[in-house]
Amino acid sequence: MVNVELQTPLNGQTFSIEGLSLNEMPSCSKISLRGDAAQLSSAIESVAGVPSVSGANRFSTASDNTQFWMGPDERLMYSNSPDAAALVQSLKQQLPAGKSAVVDVSDYYTVLRLSGDKARDVLASGTPFDIHPDNFKQGDCAQIRYGNASILLSRVAESAYDLQVRWSFAEYLWKYLCKVARYV
């Protein structure tokens, strides 16, 4: 059997200047779920132990597993378990067939983590979205535009943000962030 090595679009690169650090997170299983919101929540909770999100544009985390609100009938789940296919199977068993969809999107996206005192300024330079803490608190997530890329932004800590971006846009976003970082 061929030994397949897992790769990410940016090969786990890192970048840092004073007050800012940027790195690509290790790959994780990502699963997109569509269906009735209450049923999705209970399925995710029973399979991954993640409590349901507390409202629109929020995410919740439990032991490295996360679920994001993506729409009124859509959730996205991150899991540290490398076997996404098995997760999809166990989620499907919890959900009514024909009225829900569970799709493995692990290789569709990658996640960059931006942290440090300058992180907010760097973000503000590329998006029309209001990331002031009054509007975007810890535990909030938002699907927004950054430069020309559509990203899922989530505030994981006071000054740390995760940016989920499509694989094909990862290099663009990386270069954009690094360039902006020199000016803020």
């Binding site: 629109a56 544009n57 029309p128 699907q143 535009r145």
Partner: peptide, 10 residues
């Protein structure tokens, strides 16, 4: 109606 106030370009 789902996300609140956002910029026109979205």
């Amino acid at each position: 109606p789902y996300c609140g106030d956002r910029d026109q370009t979205e």
